[in-house]
Design a binder for these strands. Structure first.
Lengths: 374, 374
DNA sequence: CTGTTAGCGCTTTCAG
DNA sequence: CTGAAAGCGCTAACAG
C-alpha cells in the first residue's frame, strides 16, 4: 500500500541502492540518474521509512531533551535554544528531531525516559536543569547514561554538575583531566559528564546576597527550592557563603523556607517567612517564578516593594524585567547555554576542554531592591 | 556487541517469538516462562530496539507536536498538557514520546516537519496555534495531512480552525456533518480537521472590546498579530464586530498596527499607535506578551495604567495575573485544551461530535482597565 | 558510477 | 502456550 524504496527504484529504472544513495547524498551519483530518481520520488510522493533506515544504519535522528516541565519558561527557553541547533532551518540537511521529556523532577521518570530514549537509539540526550541528589538515584542514573554512551549516544548535561560517584569510581582524581579515554568503552569512569555545562548558581547567589548586604540589609529571608536538588543546594550555599563572610551566619535555618520552584510556593513561603520574622527587610527567592509569588504575598501584607522590603529572583526569565517593580535577579544566559548544548548534542562542537564549562550568572540590579528603611 | 532479542531468548531458553510476546504483553504466555524471560532481560540489561520493532510492527511511539516556539509559554503550556496525556507517568504502559517541532510560524518548516514526522511513522500529529492563511500553503498542508492520515497517523488541530479548502473539495457542504467517511481512505474530503479544537478567539476579542466600550472608551488602538494568520484575523474580527455594533467602525485601519506576537513588537506598536493618535484611551494587544511590551512603552511615555490608558492582553498566561497592574485579558484554558488534544492524539477520546469543538475564551477583568479620564 | 547481496532486530502468521 | 520461518524497508559492503 505504502510506497517503498523499491517502488521508486522501479519507476526510475535503477536499483534500490542507487535511490538510497541519492536520497542520502553520501555517495557519488550521476546527475542524470539523480534527477530521474528525484522525479520518481516526487511522482510517487515517496517518504522514507525512518524506522527502516534507522534499523539498517543503526542510527536515528532523534535527540532527547529531558526537562522538568516544558511549560516552565526556564526549560522552554533552554529547549527552544537546543532545537534551534538541531532542527530543519539550520545549515545543511542534518536535521534531527527533538524528543522532549517532562520528568516533573521525578527520578523514576528520568530513568524511564532515558530507557525509552535508548530504545529509540537517540543520537544524543540532553539533561537540563538541576539534578536530584540521592546516591541511589545518582548511581542508577550514571549506569543508564553509561549504557547510553556505550550505545553511541552523546550525553550532555546542561545546568547541572557532572555526576559525582565517589563510591563507584576506582580513582576519582583520574576523571578530572577530562581528555583521556573514549566513551565507547562503556564502564570507563570519569567519562560521564564530560559534556557538561554547569550554571554558576553558587556565584550568582553569592553576588545577589552581597548586593543586598551592601544595601544594608541584615535580616534577609531565603525561599529555597526543593531539597535534595543541586540547583537548590548551590544557590543556598552561595547565599550562605555571602552571609557568613559578613558575619551573619547564625539563625540561617529559621530564615530559610524550602518549597517547589513555583509561584504558589513563593506565595506561601513568603507568608511563612514573615510569620517567622516580621522584621524581614529582604527576601531572596529560589527563582523568578517563586519571586513573583512572594511579591504577591508581601503586597497582600501591605508591604511595598522595594520601600518596605526588597525581593530578588534568579534566572532572569523574560517576564522578570517586566514585573513591577522590575525584578532584581541573576541572569543565566539560558539561550546561549541551550545553543551550546544543542551544538554539543549534534557533535558540532567538541566537549569543553578541561572539564565542565561554567555558564556565568550575572547580577541584574533592577527596581525590586533598595536599602532597608532606617 | 549490543544485546538483542535473540540473546535474551537464548539465555531464557525460549524462542525469540516468546520473548517478544512477554515484552509486548499482547499474547498469553505461561507465568513461569514469563518470569524466566524477564529475568534474562534484567540480567542482560536488554533494551528493545525501537526502530526494529517499529519497522516490523509498522507503528511507532512518537507523537509530533508542532508549535511556533516552545519558548513561548502559550505553546509551552499547551505542549506540557499534551505530554501529560502521552507520557510515562500515566495509566498503563502505553507510553509515547513527544517530538516537539518549532516551526517559528514558517509554512515551509511546518511542511518539512510534517514530512519528517511521517518519515518517523508518527502515531499522531498535533498542530497547535493559529494557521497561516495562504491558499497555496493551505493546499500543501492539506495534502500532507491527508497523506499522514492515510498512513495511519491521527491528526489533531488545536487552536486553529479546520482546514478550509473550498477550491479543492468537490462538495464543501458534505464535510460539515462530520461523521461520515473514514480517514483511512485517503483522498476523502472533509476528513481533515475532524479532530479539531478551535479557540474562541473571535468571541473573546469581542467581549474584551465590549468591556472597554462599556467602561466608556471610544478611542481604542489595536495591536494585531502578524497578518495572514487565523488567530490574528479572528481576534481582529471580534474586536471590530464589537466596535461596529457600537457604531465605531470608522477609522479602524489607522488605529490598528500589525506586528509579531512578541514583547518588542508590543513595545514598538504602542509607540506607533500613540504617534498616530495621541488621544488614545485604551490599547488592546494581540496577546499577553504583546501587552507587556505595550505597557512598558506606554509607561515610558509617562502614561499611568489604567488611570491614563487601559491595556488588555489575550490568553491569560501565568504571568498576566502577576503583572502590575494585573492584566485584564481573555483566558483560554490552554492546559485543558492541551489535555484534550493529547487524549485525542492517543486515541483515548473520540473526535468531537458534529465538527470542531470550540474552546471557550473568558474575559478576565483585572486592574489594567478602567474608565477613561473625563 | 551502479547493481547485487546480505543482513539490521523485531513481529507475526502458521504450525505444532 | 510455544517455535519456526518469513519478511518489514532500508543500508552497506562488495563487485563490477
Amino acid at each position: 500500500m505504502t510506497v517503498t524504496l523499491a517502488d521508486v527504484a522501479a519507476r526510475a529504472g535503477v536499483s534500490a541502492a542507487t535511490v538510497s544513495r541519492v536520497l542520502n547524498g553520501n555517495y557519488p551519483v550521476a546527475g542524470d540518474t539523480r534527477t530521474r530518481v528525484l522525479r520518481a520520488v516526487e511522482e510517487l510522493e515517496y517518504v522514507v521509512n525512518g524506522p527502516a533506515s534507522s534499523l539498517a544504519a543503526a542510527t536515528s535522528d532523534l535527540i532527547g531533551i529531558l526537562v522538568n516541565d516544558i511549560a516552565d519558561p526556564f526549560f522552554g527557553v533552554l529547549a527552544s535554544a537546543v532545537q534551534s541547533q538541531i532542527s530543519p532551518l539550520g545549515s545543511g540537511r542534518v536535521q534531527k528531531l527533538a524528543v522532549i521529556c517532562n520528568t516533573g523532577g521525578s527520578p523514576e521518570r528520568e530513568l524511564t525516559y532515558l530507557t525509552l530514549l535508548q530504545r529509540q537509539r537517540a543520537a544524543a540526550v540532553v539533561l537540563t536543569g538541576g539534578a536530584v541528589e540521592d546516591p541511589a538515584h545518582t548511581r542508577a542514573l550514571a549506569a543508564r547514561l553509561r549504557r547510553l554512551e556505550a550505545a553511541g549516544a552523546r550525553v550532555i548535561l546542561c545546568g547541572r554538575p557532572p555526576l559525582a560517584l565517589p563510591d563507584t569510581l576506582p580513582d576519582p582524581s583520574a576523571g578530572t583531566d577530562g581528555t583521556g579515554g573514549t566513551a565507547d568503552e562503556g564502564g570507563e569512569p570519569g567519562t560521564i559528564g564530560r559534556c557538561t555545562l554547569t550554571f554558576d548558581n553558587r556565584g550568582g547567589a553569592r553576588r545577589l546576597t552581597e548586593h543586598l548586604l551592601s544595601l544594608g540589609h541584615r535580616t534577609v529571608g531565603y525561599l529555597a527550592g526543593p531539597a535534595a536538588r543541586t540547583t537548590t543546594r548551590h544557590r543556598l550555599e552561595g547565599h550562605r557563603a555571602a552571609l557568613a563572610a559578613a558575619g551573619l551566619g547564625a539563625d540561617r535555618e529559621r530564615l530559610t523556607v524550602h518549597g517547589a520552584f513555583t509561584r504558589s510556593s513563593g506565595y506561601e513561603g513568603a507568608q511563612e517567612l514573615l510569620r517567622r520574622e516580621p522584621g524581614l527587610t529582604a527576601v531572596l527567592a529560589a527563582n523568578d517564578t517563586v519571586a513573583l509569588g512572594a511579591t504577591a504575598a508581601l503586597r497582600e501584607q501591605g508591604l511595598r516593594i522595594p520601600e518596605d522590603i526588597s525581593v530578588t529572583g534568579f534566572d532572569d526569565l523574560p517576564f522578570a524585567a517586566d514585573a513591577a517593580p522590575a525584578l532584581t535577579t541573576v541572569r543565566i544566559p539560558l539561550h546561549e547555554a541551550g545553543v551550546r548544548a544543542g551544538r554539543l548534542a549534534m557533535g558540532l562542537e567538541t566537549p569543553p576542554e578541561g572539564g565542565p564549562a561554567t555558564v556565568p550568572a550575572d547580577l541584574m540590579i533592577r527596581a525590586s531592591t533598595a536599602p532597608p528603611r532606617p
